[in-house]
């Protein structure tokens, strides 16, 4: 009896999430009257703006991931190794982006880094891109930090560090050759989550007036009927592929270790 109730709950949950998705997908296929077709998808893919914005967001996602890894891995490592008492404070800071809306952060950026400020980043496209990358890194911080911290928890950071030091290694070598490779799966999980966040992010890119994928989706949604759901399905697919890659990387890593 309990099993039936459990399965019924799972089924209900699936229907709750999948029905709207199925409805949206079905609608995206109805561009040609009377038959199902991929016309809406073709239109989206034929639009050069789609590729330009998607490429732009991908580039910024890559930059965000690199910056995030360079910021988070040494920080989480150092906190675990030398400053365990500072852990609650660091965790609180990394959680702030979840409670401070992106619009507040971006207005703060514009106030601080406008053309009349001491660091006029918004004065050039490149400067604004840097600002946007920092913003994305802030938004992805809770996920990246937790992923890396969980990875660090699985290894004996202190002893491995001491072993490497006794063999003559300095901090950079320890981080690059011992710590990072051992938390790579966790870092990749954080990276894919970052990618998913950056691809769908609208507020920061729109307010900083940059040609990102999020504002493109919004623009298309405001002016067309069938292309927006097609684009939503594409965006969902990208996110799911990212999630799938996290799983794959985790399994691949275990498989490699077992095989070797």
């Amino acid at each position: 009896m309990t099993r039936i109730v459990a399965w019924a709950a799972v089924l209900l949950g699936c229907l709750y999430f999948l029905l709207p998705l199925a409805g949206m997908t079905e609608f995206s296929l109805k561009m040609r009257r009377g038959v199902y077709s991929f016309d809406a998808y073709v239109k989206v893919f034929e639009d050069p703006t789609f590729w330009a914005t998607f490429g732009y967001s991908l580039t910024l996602a890559a930059a965000t991931i690199v910056f995030g890894v360079l910021l988070v891995v040494p920080t989480a490592y150092w906190v675990r190794l030398k400053l365990p008492q500072a852990r609650p404070v660091v965790e609180f800071i990394t959680l702030l982006p979840l409670v401070i809306p992106a619009i507040v952060i971006v207005f703060g950026y514009i106030r601080l880094y406008n053309t009349s400020s001491f660091l006029p980043l918004t004065g050039s496209a490149f400067g604004t891109d840097i600002l946007l990358t920092m913003g994305y890194a802030t938004l992805a911080l809770p996920y990246m930090y937790r992923a890396v911290d969980t990875g660090l928890r699985t290894i004996d950071v202190a002893t491995l560090t001491e072993a490497a030091q006794s063999l003559g290694a300095g901090w950079f070598t320890i981080l690059a050759r011992i710590i990072l490779p051992n938390v790579l799966v966790a870092v990749l999980s954080g990276a894919f989550l970052t990618l998913a966040i950056v691809i769908g992010e609208f507020t920061m890119a729109a307010l900083l007036n940059r040609p990102a994928f999020g504002p493109f989706m919004q623009l298309l949604g405001a002016n067309r009927a069938y292309e927006p759901p097609a684009l939503a399905v594409i965006a969902f697919t990208i996110t799911w592929v990212c999630m799938g890659l996290i799983q794959l990387v985790t399994r691949f890593s275990k498989h490699e270790r077992a095989k070797a």
């Binding site: 004996d156 002893t159 001491e162 072993a163 490497a164 030091q165 006794s166 063999l167 003559g168 790579l184």
Partner: peptide, 22 residues
């Protein structure tokens, strides 16, 4: 002197082999 300058070798109770290396 820092540890990495002392030219010492050390064995630990927990082995401390680097898991990512052969």
């Amino acid at each position: 002197q820092r540890t990495n300058q002392r030219a010492i070798g050390m064995m630990f109770q927990a082995y401390a082999l680097f898991p990512n290396m052969t």
